[in-house]
């Protein structure tokens, strides 16, 4: 048997089965990373479109008062300047990983399958829901706010609501938009909750980053595809939104310390990633259905 440490001092390999178990543990212990919603969903996660995960939720999440749902602001209503707003939720569920070579996730044609060298595939369902106010609710919501002169800082996206009387310091006379953040949700009506789920496929690769004394693995998106949405502009818009959410909101919180991938077994020593060379062309490396890390004593 060829030595696993032929070109390093410590070698670690986690196959995709273990990685999928890790993703499952992550989903059960850090649900707020995958579930987003407005106040009613935060207070009662059973209202989410897909609440089946609650049965597998780690009891320590509740014990340590960790959130199940990351709270989002209410969705504003175009042209309406009153306090009411929509309640909505967005979830990523049924997450699954397939390390190169492709063998468990059937990638859509838009992602040019099969997986290329050093890539891995991610499949998830993105479920979203909007609680639609009933006709009765709408009739009860009186539009009482008078129109007012538009005020907004056009340069930095800062929201400006109703200016105080006589206060002109924040008024940008060039502004042409009215921005008003809703503060009160419509009364929640579970029966009028409109949900849908989309299959999301993504191709990613890993990169090593972080400080030299505590390097970690970052997950980088190479492409994303949500098939079967028409028109194409809608598909691309949703893909853009999901990709940006993953890239900026979720994946940066999934940094895996290189030392953790070898269970910190040499934590009394100073170790770092093995330099990339002809013998170790990628570090970390994704191949043979596993992720491999190569570490060297400093």
């Amino acid at each position: 048997m060829a030595a696993l440490t032929q070109f390093c001092d410590i070698f670690g390999a986690i196959n995709e089965g273990a990685f999928n178990n890790l993703v499952n543990d992550l989903k059960n212990q850090r649900p707020s990373l995958f579930n987003y919603g407005t106040i009613s969903f935060v207070k009662n996660p059973k209202l989410l479109c897909n609440n089946s995960f609650l049965q597998q939720l780690d009891p320590d999440v509740t014990l340590f008062q960790n959130p199940v749902v990351t709270q989002q602001p209410l969705l504003g209503i175009l042209g309406y300047t009153g306090p009411f707003g929509f309640e909505y939720c967005l979830q990523f569920t049924e997450l699954q990983i397939d390390f190169q070579p492709s063998n468990t996730i059937q990638l859509p044609a838009g992602l040019n399958p099969p997986l290329k060298s050093q890539q891995f595939a991610l499949h998830a369902q993105a479920c979203a829901g909007l609680d639609c106010p009933t006709a009765r609710t709408l009739s009860q919501v009186e539009v009482s706010d008078p129109a007012f002169f538009p005020v907004v800082n056009s340069g930095d996206l800062t929201q400006v609501n109703h200016p105080a009387s006589g206060d002109t310091t924040n008024i940008d006379t060039k502004g042409i938009l009215v921005v008003s953040s809703p503060t009160i949700p419509f009364p929640f009506e579970p029966k009028t909750m409109q949900c849908f789920c989309l299959d999301v496929f993504a191709v990613l690769h890993v990169e090593e980053g972080g400080p030299t004394n505590n390097p970690f693995i970052s997950l980088i998106i190479d492409g994303i595809e949500i098939p079967e949405i028409r028109p194409l502009g809608l598909e691309h818009s949703i893909e853009c939104y999901v990709k940006t959410t993953l890239a900026l909101g979720i994946l940066p919180k999934l940094k895996l310390a290189l030392n953790a991938l070898v269970f910190n077994i040499a934590n009394i020593l100073t170790i770092g990633p093995t330099a990339v060379s002809a013998n170790v062309p990628f570090n970390p490396s994704i191949e043979k259905d596993q992720i491999e890390v190569f570490l060297t004593l400093n």
Partner: peptide
């Protein structure tokens, strides 16, 4: 589903402890 290999050089460093 997880394999970790530690070479003799690392063991000797650990042994110094």
């Amino acid at each position: 589903n997880v394999n970790i290999a530690v070479n003799a050089k690392t063991l000797n460093k650990i042994f110094a402890d």
